[in-house]
Design a protein around this nucleic acid. Structure first.
Lengths: 168, 168
DNA sequence: ATTTAATTTCAATTATTTTTGAAAGTACAA
DNA sequence: TTGTACTTTCAAAAATAATTGAAATTAAAT
């Protein structure tokens, strides 16, 4: 396989995977392309390589920067902006975990806290099931939240070591 | 808050969360409703409570059964089918992890293996970056794959214990 | 065998999300 | 200050995903 073909396959596959996880295909493709590029790229480069419009590149780059996955580089004497991505996948995973935790898990934890406060009516099967399920979900969500927090703070090697212990 | 209001809020919130994770809103709502219902529900119940069509219920129930999250109950002497969900959130999480791993992670691992096989051209910065990034992603994806596998096999208490160790 | 009570399927519709492209905005240079 | 080279914005269009509803299908009861 040629390098160019390999790159294309990677960018394509990453875009497809992203849609299955609620992430915009183009955003994932831009990110993938920046991750495998040795040099920072311009808007023009991204437009040409992914065959997409200027506006699309601009908006998705902004989102990627909001997610803390892509950065802007300004070169002295040049007007146009260059973009590059963090290439260490462990750092990327930690950043994604951090953002999803903040944006999605935290609001859910708040809702679950509220729902746990709804009074149980003893003898009412529906009320009891509701409570038991909310409690069960709370436990797991808090567990996941703690796991993400731990992973965010941990080194990759520490997680790996822990895993090996878990697996044997 | 009334029980009915609490249930509605939960079903609604779960549907919204689902869309952020690439899961169909209605599928998540049906699942949520079955999780907090003491009794198995019929297609009619789901249609009425979620205000959706028969076809929609039918298709999403099939998907939920494919995911191993919802089951069918046949009552002697009754023609219609009753549906219920696993209510233990830890078991649900394990099942989801198992399915996503099978459906999504495994194909990615296969692709990454292939891309790792593409020969590096020493001195070519783009080729070297491509390789380094693919290697880095492979490490993290395999780590996540192992973590999911471990979590699938582990008891909740074991994960919790491990987490506490990680956190201190 | 026929009727009946249900479920499933899928083409057409509707809703949602993404993308475009051109106008507006920004800011550097002359 | 005007022009130039770029970036951002956003209403409209296009693409994609979800939903409907009625016909087809299934299978239990008569």
């Amino acid at each position: 396989m040629e390098l160019q073909e390999a790159k294309d396959r990677f960018v394509q596959a990453w875009g497809t995977l992203a849609t299955q996880w609620g992430i915009n295909r183009t955003m994932a493709q831009i990110h993938a392309l920046l991750m495998i590029s040795a040099n920072a790229l311009t808007t023009e480069d991204l437009m040409a390589q992914l065959q997409i419009s200027r506006g699309n590149v601009s908006m998705n780059l902004r989102d990627l920067m909001d997610w803390g996955l892509v950065f802007k580089e300004l070169r002295p004497g040049e007007r146009k902006e260059y973009f590059f991505a963090e290439k260490d996948a462990w750092k990327v995973a930690k950043q994604v975990a951090k953002e999803r935790r903040r944006r999605e898990i935290e609001p859910v934890i708040k809702l679950l806290e509220e729902l746990r406060g709804v009074p149980v009516r003893a003898g009412d099967a529906d009320s009891e099931t509701f409570h038991a399920t909310i409690e069960s979900i709370s436990r797991v969500v808090n567990l996941a939240d703690g796991a993400l927090d731990a992973a965010m703070k941990a080194e990759e090697s520490l997680i790996l070591g822990t895993l090996i212990k878990l697996l044997r």
